[in-house]
Write a protein that binds this DNA or RNA. Sequence first.
DNA 1: AACTCAGGCAACCGCAAAAGC
DNA 2: TGCTTTTGCGGTTGCCTGAGT
Length: 192
Amino acid sequence: MRKPCCDKQHTNKGAWSQQEDQKLVDYIQKHGEGCWRSLPQAAGLLRCGKSCRLRWRNYLRPDLKRDGFGEDEEDLIIRLHALLGNRWSLIAGRLPGRTDNEVKNYWNSHIRKKLDYSHRHVGFTRLRAEISAARSKNQANDPETFIDVNNQVVGFNGGKLEPTNDSSSGIYINLDLTLSIPSKNFESSDEN
DNA sequence: AACTCAGGCAACCGCAAAAGC
DNA sequence: TGCTTTTGCGGTTGCCTGAGT
């Protein structure tokens, strides 16, 4: 039987107060990240470890961007989502200062709607077709499909998408994620 | 001004993978 | 090697806010 992550009767839930944030930040600055299970008690917080970890990673980390998503970031998310699906942590990993939760929320509240409009966009359709071909090759367990994501070559290895140095053979797709599709085209495609 | 409703975001939950023993 | 514990991830929920009526 799995133990619950914390004693829910003695933990706070809901929005974090400034005092709680400060305690968490102070503790992590002193002791570093990790040991989330024991952290709340050590930091004097009535929260479960998972809650502390989430709060730190999504909102308190000093390297987070707190401004809105730019067009280039949005384009990148669209391309990565076409490639990776709902692998939010992987997508967020390609966006410095962004979290998986932030990307996921942004996708669900903004981009998904936009894509409903843009699915007829020729360039985007072509991109999806290329990616779809690569993914179906992967489903056939063919390891020789490589995708260049911002100069990092990744390959399907045993069904997993992983960085690889071996791109000497097989299908090779350069997504060129440093360039952005003019996102205005997405919007305009349905408005005529 | 009051009410309703939809959108956006923060946070929680449960599961799976990884790590430790 | 197998079991337990911890961490990470993705889906979902619930609250808050602003627009519309």
